[in-house]
Each structure stands twice: as C-alpha cells, then as structure tokens.
Computed example of a mutant assay.
Amino acid sequence: MFKQRLVNIMLIILVTLSLMGALTLVLYTQFFQETKAESEISIDDIIRTSVETDEITTNLLSNHIIRTSFVIHLDNTKSKEEFEKRDFQVNNIIIQELADMKESDFRGSEGIRELEERVRDRINDILQDGYVVHVYMNQRIIQ
C-alpha cells in the first residue's frame, strides 16, 4: 500500500509540473513575444499596393478650376488590379466629389482630409475584392 501511495504522489507531482510548464509556455508566447503591429506597414508594401490617378482637371462649385491627382493605397495586390480596371469609375467619383466643393474648402487641411475620406468611402463601395486603406492628395492647383 505504501508503494502505491508513493507512485500516486509521484504521478500527481509530474502532472502538476507538466501543467505549470505548459502554462508558462502559453503565457510566454502570448505576452512576451514581440509582435509587429498591423499599422506598421513598410513603405515598400505601401508603394507596391498603391495606384496614382491621372491628373484630373475640373470645375469647383465656386467657379474655380482645380487640377489634382491622388495616390490611393489599397490593402492587397488583388484589389489593386481591380482598382486599375475601374479607373474610369474612380475618376468619376473624384470629379463628383470635387464638383460639390468650393475653393474655400481647400484652404485648410481639414477640407482635404474630408475629401480624402469621402473618396475612400465611395471607392470602397464599388470595390469587390479588398478595400482602400488610405487616399492621399498628391497634387492640388486651384485657379
């Protein structure tokens, strides 16, 4: 009886040590491993999945003329290919958004940021594979 009790105690100690080791391994891999945040995308990846629009010249609501171009960053190369096929739709979206703006909307950075967000949202509505991460106004000349 003494030998069986000693074996049972030994098995309990081995199972306890094994569980503690497994728990330590899980905690170490979950909390102490350095992970790269999703928001830290390399510039090479951004360039690889970005498309620059042609220069667009159109009238603003305030009877001024704007000449502009955009760089549109997409989430992957498949969405970039679809975007390139839909370039005429994208140009139409940009012209429609610009036609509703006045020259005064471009005086501060807030107006440009709002335009970029509206263009991003409208392009995301037409894309089927992927999405637009960010829209950058690359050039802006108002006359």
Rank of each mutant, 00 (worst) to 15 (best):
E110S: 11
Q96E: 12
Q143M: 14
D75C: 06
R67T: 15
T49L: 05
L23E: 07
G108V: 02
E103F: 09
H64F: 15
I141C: 01
G21N: 14
R107T: 11
E114I: 09
T16R: 04
T58G: 03
V135L: 02
F70G: 06
K3L: 07
T58Y: 03
L127I: 10
R113P: 00
S62M: 10
A99R: 09
D75R: 02
I43D: 14
E97N: 13
G21F: 13
S104K: 15
L60R: 13
S50V: 03
G21Q: 09
Q4S: 09
S79M: 06
H73Q: 15
E84I: 11
V132C: 01
S104R: 10
I66Q: 03
E97V: 02
E103N: 11
D75Y: 05
R113W: 05
F32T: 06
I126W: 10
T24V: 03
L19V: 08
A22D: 05
H134N: 09
M137L: 14
D45L: 08
I141S: 03
M20L: 13
I9K: 11
N63C: 05
S69Y: 08
E38F: 10
Y136A: 07
Q33Y: 12
K3I: 02
V135D: 02
L115I: 01
V135K: 03
N138L: 09
E117H: 09
S109W: 04
L127N: 10
K3F: 07
R120P: 03
E82Y: 14
N91Q: 12
T57Y: 05
D44E: 15
R122T: 00
E110C: 00
V135A: 05
I9F: 12
R140C: 12
D129M: 04
R118D: 11
T77V: 04
I47L: 15
F2P: 00
E114N: 08
T49E: 12
I13P: 00
L127E: 10
Q33G: 00
K3C: 00
